[in-house]
Amino acid sequence: MAQKVLNILIASVGGQGGLTLSRVIAAAAVAEGLRVRTGETLGMAQRFGSVMSFVRVGEEVTSPLFGHGEADVFIGMELIEALRRIPYVRKGGVAVVALTLKPPVSSSLGIAPRPSKEELVKELRRALPSIRFVDAVEEAKKIGNYRAANMVLLGYVNGLVGMLKDESVEAGISAILRPKAVETSIRAYYRGKELAKE
C-alpha cells in the first residue's frame, strides 16, 4: 500500500458484525506491518442500534477519527445506516453496500419514514453514482454462514481497492474470529473478491 493513510468507514446495525469487520481490518493491517487506529462506539449500540466504525490504516496514523467527505473506502452493512453515513465518503471514494434492510422500530411504528430498498438504493446512487451494491447476506448464506456477510463485503472492497494483501486478511480473520467461523469467513472473503470482478 502507498504511504498515505487510508480512511475506512463502516456503517452497520448493532449485531451485524460491523465491529468484528473493523477488528479484522485492523489485525490484517498490523499483520502487514502497517499502523492502525479505529474509533468504535461500543456499549449502548451493541445490539440493533446505529453503529459506526472508523478505521484508519497507514504508515503513520495517530488519530482514530475523520470527518465528512474524508472516507476513501465505505462499507455499508445495511441500507439505512449506509444512507445515514454516506456523507463521510470523499469525492472519488469507493463504496460498497449490502442489499440488507433492517428498518428501525420507529419506521415500523409509522413515526419515522419507511423507505423501501429501491428508494434507498436510488438515494444512495444519487449521493454517490459509483456506489456498488452486493447481496452480501445471500452470498454468505450460500457459504453456510450468514454472519460472514461482513467478510463478503471486505472481499468485495478489497477486490476494488487492493488495500490489503490476501494473506494479511486471512491472518486478520484467524486472529479475530472464533476458530469454527474462520474457514467460512475466509471463503466469504474470496467470494466477495470474485463478485467485485463481475
Partner: peptide, 12 residues
C-alpha cells in the same frame, strides 16, 4: 454535519 436523511435508530 449535514442533516441526517435516514430514519433515526435509537437502540431498542
Amino acid at each position: 454535519e449535514a442533516q441526517d436523511k435516514a430514519p433515526p435508530r435509537p437502540p431498542p
